[in-house]
C-alpha cells in the first residue's frame, strides 16, 4: 500500500516540522508560564522578526543563520520594552485587559507591516535552500535539519537559564508566587519584562531558522499562532521540554493525519489531540508551571 511506503519519510517530515513548531512555541510557553497571560501578539512578533531577517538578508546580505546574533538581542529588547511600557502598564494586571492589549499590539504590528512593506509575499534566496540531506529513509532539506538541531539547542539554553541562573531562580519564584516574590525583594515588573523579552527573543531565533524554507508577509503570524498555542497546552504551559515534545507530537500528528485523512481534514487531528489533552490532562504532558 502506498501509505505504508511513505510512512517513515512522512514521520521524519513530521518531526522536522514539529521542531519548527517547537521553536515558535518555546517563547510562548515561557511567557504563559511566568505571566499567565495568553499572548495574542506572539504571531505578529514572529512576523516582525521574519521581516527583520528578510531585510538583513536582502539589504545587507547577511545570511539568515548569521542574523541570529542580531535578531535575538533585538527581539529581546523589543519584548522587554513592550511588556514594561505597554502591556504591563495598560493591562492593570487584569487577564481580560492583557488579552485586549496583546490583541491591539497584534493589530498594530500587522497593519504597520502592511502599510510599510505592502502585502507582498517575500522569500529569500540562499545557496543551501535546495540542499538535501540523505537520512537513509528520506531526503530532508538541509535548512530543516538545521532547524531541528537548533530547536534542541534553544530548549537546552532556555532550560539552563531557568534552572541554573539567578535570573532563572527569580523567574521561577515570580511564576510560582508573585506576591511572595515581591515580598522577598524581587522586582516583579522587571522579571515579567525579562520573561517576556526572553520569550520574544526565541522568536528572533525561530525567524532566522524558518525563513530559508518559508516566506514572510504581514499575515504570516496567523500561520503559526494557533499551532503554537496547541503545542504549549500539549506540553504543559511553562514547560520547555513539553514544548519540544509537544511540537514533535503535533508535527507528526499533522503529517500522519494528512496521510490518513487527507491534508485538509487531517488538520483536525491536531485539534482533537488539543481537546483531549485539555479535558483529560489540562496541565499538559509535562506538567505546568516552571518548577
Amino acid at each position: 500500500m502506498l501509505e505504508l511506503t511513505i510512512l517513515l519519510p512522512a514521520l521524519i517530515n513530521g518531526l522536522t516540522l514539529g521542531a519548527v513548531y517547537a521553536l515558535v512555541a518555546l517563547g510562548l510557553t515561557l511567557i504563559y508560564g511566568v505571566l499567565h497571560i495568553i499572548n495574542f501578539a506572539h504571531g505578529s512578533l514572529l512576523m516582525a522578526a521574519l521581516y527583520g531577517v528578510f531585510f538583513l538578508n536582502t539589504g545587507l546580505g547577511i545570511d539568515p543563520y548569521a542574523a541570529i546574533v542580531v535578531m535575538v538581542p533585538a527581539l529581546f529588547a523589543a519584548g522587554y520594552v513592550l511588556q514594561r511600557s505597554v502591556i504591563g502598564k495598560a493591562s492593570h494586571g487584569k487577564d481580560q485587559n492583557v488579552l485586549l492589549v496583546t490583541l491591539g499590539i497584534a493589530i498594530v504590528i500587522e497593519n504597520l507591516a502592511l502599510a510599510l512593506f505592502s502585502a507582498d509575499t517575500r522569500t529569500i534566496d540562499t545557496p543551501y535552500a535546495f540542499e538535501m540531506v540523505d537520512l537513509g529513509i528520506a531526503f530532508v532539506p538541509l535548512p530543516r535539519v538545521i532547524a531541528f538541531i537548533a530547536a534542541l539547542a534553544v530548549t537546552a539554553v532556555l532550560w539552563f537559564i531557568i534552572a541554573r541562573t539567578d535570573l532563572g531562580r527569580a523567574i521561577r519564584a515570580v511564576a510560582k508566587e508573585r506576591q511572595g516574590a515581591r515580598l522577598v525583594g524581587i522586582d516583579v515588573d522587571h522579571i515579567f519584562a525579562m520573561s517576556f523579552g526572553i520569550g520574544t527573543a526565541c522568536l528572533g531565533a525561530a525567524a532566522c531558522l524558518l525563513l530559508p524554507t518559508f516566506y514572510v508577509s504581514p499575515g504570516v503570524g496567523h500561520v503559526f499562532v494557533l499551532i503554537a498555542f496547541t503545542v504549549v497546552v500539549l506540553g504543559g504551559m511553562g514547560s520547555f521540554v513539553g514544548a519540544l515534545v509537544g511540537g514533535f507530537i503535533i508535527g507528526v500528528t499533522e503529517s500522519l493525519g494528512g496521510l490518513l485523512l487527507g491534508e485538509s481534514l487531517g488538520q483536525i487531528g491536531i485539534f482533537l489531540i488539543f481537546i483531549a489533552i485539555l479535558l483529560l490532562r489540562p496541565t499538559g504532558l509535562f506538567g505546568s508551571r516552571l518548577s
Binding site: S91, N97, G104, A106, S118, A119
Partner: peptide
Amino acid sequence: DVPGLDLVFYGVLLIVMVRFLP
C-alpha cells in the same frame, strides 16, 4: 487611503482605551 494605517490607529486606540478605562 494607505492600506492598513486605519487599522494601526484602531489598534492603538484599543490599547489606549484599555489603559485609561480598565
